[in-house]
């Protein structure tokens, strides 16, 4: 199941990192940041090696000890990262198709969030609505 979602700007700055779990605990927040941060290298490498820019559906994965990371890159090089725990409670592995839909939905949510005329591109996403929707996505979808 998905545990964390991150939106990363084209300059690799964190725009949004959210996940389920005890949110207020900074420890959790930190570990999430570490997780996504270290996965950025592999993401970048994959992006650099893929010649074409039609990375809209470019799906890349990186694995850490307990988590699988799925990346999704928009045309504007915004990276959407979905972290799933590889040990799913049901025991079955998450199918790629599921991840794909989840990421598409996330992309749509992101597009909605930056449609806000008061949002400056490149700024952190502080929208409460986005946060709420992302959390429901994490909980329900995957």
């Amino acid at each position: 199941m998905a545990v964390c979602v991150a939106v990363i700007g084209k300059d690799n700055s964190p725009l949004y990192i959210g996940g389920i779990g005890n949110d207020c605990s900074t420890d959790n927040e930190l570990s999430r940041q570490w997780l996504v941060h270290t996965a950025l290298d592999a993401l970048e490498e994959r992006l650099a090696t893929s010649s074409s820019i039609n990375a809209n559906s470019g799906n890349s994965t990186a694995h850490t000890d307990l988590r699988d990371l799925y990346g999704y890159v928009t045309n504007t090089r915004i990276k959407l990262v979905l972290v799933t725990s590889s040990t799913s409670p049901s025991g079955s592995n998450i199918r790629d198709a599921e991840v794909r839909t989840a990421l598409r939905r996330l992309h749509a949510l992101y597009a909605d969030a930056i449609c806000n005329p008061f949002h400056l591109p490149g700024d952190q996403i502080t929208s409460v609505k986005f946060d709420k929707q992302v959390k429901s996505l994490i909980l329900n979808n995957v």
Partner: peptide, 13 residues
């Protein structure tokens, strides 16, 4: 080795 392949973030981790 991570540094050698340019994965500086991983190396740092």
């Amino acid at each position: 080795l991570y540094k050698d392949i340019g994965f500086l973030r991983k190396a740092a981790f």
